[in-house]
Amino acid sequence: MTQNPPIRRALLPATALLAALALAGCSGGGSVRVAAPVTTGSTAEQCAALKAALPATLQGRKLRDTTPESANTAAWGNPAITLRCGVGTAAVLDPHSPAYDLNADIEESGGVCWVSEQTAGGGFRFTTVRQQATVELTLPAAYAGGQSPVGLLAGAVLKADPVVRDRPFACV
């Protein structure tokens, strides 16, 4: 049985579209779902300035769109390294949190103090500790053991949100 040529021509674009969508899914294209913190005032302004200052690539990984679209989020690569701006104090630094840790690992990189925590999935979360608009960077387990990208983001963080000197946390 042969198909009618008009039907065959109509099926070709649909087949090409499905193939393109399948390839995009395999290549890591598309947007990344990242929970966007709600910010107002100067924190919202600093997060928007940070997003504008972020690099198009991070350790060779291209910047991707985030869902929902927000000035408070960014992502690079696949699996995605995600950034959220305007988050609260890291739980390991909050004395009211069950995760509070007097020995939390706080280190300086590029002039920015970051506390690091291992995530349940084997990745890492880095959170700034002396910025008004607290920034959180999450690396999936796939990048564990590699070089941390926080130093590469320090310039953008400092440009958008200089250090708040009266924060109680100190870098080692």
Rank of each mutant, 00 (worst) to 15 (best):
V112K: 11
S42L: 11
C85T: 03
A16P: 02
G41T: 02
P6Y: 11
W76Q: 12
A35W: 01
M1Q: 08
L137Y: 02
A52H: 09
G30R: 03
T128L: 11
P140C: 06
K159S: 15
V115H: 06
V150W: 01
A36L: 11
I81L: 13
E69D: 15
A141I: 00
W114D: 13
Q3G: 11
A144H: 05
R125A: 15
G146I: 00
R167N: 14
V157D: 09
T40R: 12
A142V: 02
R61N: 00
C47A: 15
V38D: 15
T134K: 04
E45C: 02
V34H: 06
D101Y: 00
A91Y: 03
A35S: 15
S109P: 01
C26A: 14
I81A: 07
G145C: 02
E45T: 11
A20C: 08
T73G: 13
P55S: 09
A19Y: 10
T43C: 03
P5A: 14
A154D: 11
S42P: 04
R167C: 05
L23K: 01
R125C: 03
P55T: 03
R9W: 15
E108F: 10
T127G: 11
V32L: 06
C47V: 10
Q132H: 12
V32W: 05
D101Q: 00
P13G: 05
P6C: 06
E117R: 08
L158F: 03
A156T: 12
L63E: 15
R130V: 05
V112H: 13
V172I: 07
P98C: 07
A48V: 12
A154H: 05
A35C: 03
R125D: 13
A22R: 07
V164P: 01
C85R: 08
A16Y: 03
S31Q: 13
R33Y: 05
C47G: 12
T43M: 06
C47H: 11
T67L: 10
W114T: 09
G60P: 01
L153P: 08
P98D: 14
A44P: 08
L152T: 05
G123K: 01
R130S: 13
A74D: 09
A91C: 01
L21R: 05
D101S: 02
T119W: 04
G110D: 14
V129H: 07
T82Y: 03
L152H: 08
A49P: 08
A141M: 01
C113P: 09
A154I: 06
C26W: 11
A24T: 09
P13D: 06
G123S: 02
R9S: 15
F124R: 10
G88A: 15
A144K: 05
P149K: 02
S97D: 13
P55Q: 08
L21I: 07
V92I: 08
A49K: 14
G123Y: 01
T2V: 07
F126V: 03
A104F: 00
G77I: 01
T40V: 06
T89P: 02
L18F: 06
E136F: 00
Q3W: 10
P79K: 13
L17D: 11
A142M: 00
Q147M: 04
